[in-house]
Simulated scan of single mutants.
Amino acid sequence: MVKVYEVDKDVDIQFKRRVANLFMGQLEPIGPANVYDQLMRTIDLALKQDSQAHIFVAEKQDTLVGAAFFNVALSIDKGGHYIWLNDLYVHKEHRNQGIAKKLLLHVIYWAENEGIKGIELETGINNEATKSLYNSLGFYDIISKRYGFRY
Rank of each mutant, 00 (worst) to 15 (best):
Y36C: 05
D37G: 15
Q38L: 09
Q38Y: 11
Q38V: 14
Q38E: 15
L39M: 12
M40R: 03
T42V: 04
I43A: 08
D44G: 01
D44T: 01
L45P: 02
L45C: 03
L47F: 06
L47K: 09
L47Q: 10
D50L: 07
S51R: 08
Q52F: 07
Q52D: 12
A53Q: 14
A53M: 09
H54Y: 15
H54R: 15
I55W: 10
I55E: 02
A58N: 07
K60N: 10
Q61A: 13
V65F: 05
V65I: 01
G66S: 07
F69V: 14
F69K: 00
F70V: 07
F70L: 14
V72N: 05
V72R: 12
V72F: 06
L74A: 02
S75G: 10
G79I: 00
I83T: 01
I83Q: 09
W84A: 09
W84C: 01
L85W: 11
N86W: 07
Y89H: 13
H91A: 15
E93N: 14
H94S: 15
H94Q: 07
R95I: 04
N96E: 15
G98E: 02
A100D: 08
K101T: 12
K102F: 02
K102L: 15
L104R: 01
L104Y: 07
L105R: 12
H106M: 08
V107T: 12
I108C: 02
A111Y: 00
A111N: 00
A111G: 13
E114L: 12
G115C: 04
I116C: 08
K117F: 04
G118K: 04
G118Q: 05
I119R: 07
E120K: 10
E122H: 13
E122P: 00
E122C: 11
E122K: 10
T123F: 02
G124K: 03
I125N: 08
I125L: 09
N127L: 03
N127P: 02
A129F: 01
T130E: 12
T130C: 14
T130Y: 01
L133E: 07
Y134Q: 03
N135I: 05
S136D: 09
L137R: 05
G138F: 10
G138I: 02
F139P: 00
F139M: 14
F139V: 00
D141K: 15
D141P: 04
I142K: 15
I143H: 11
S144Y: 06
K145E: 11
R146L: 10
R146N: 13
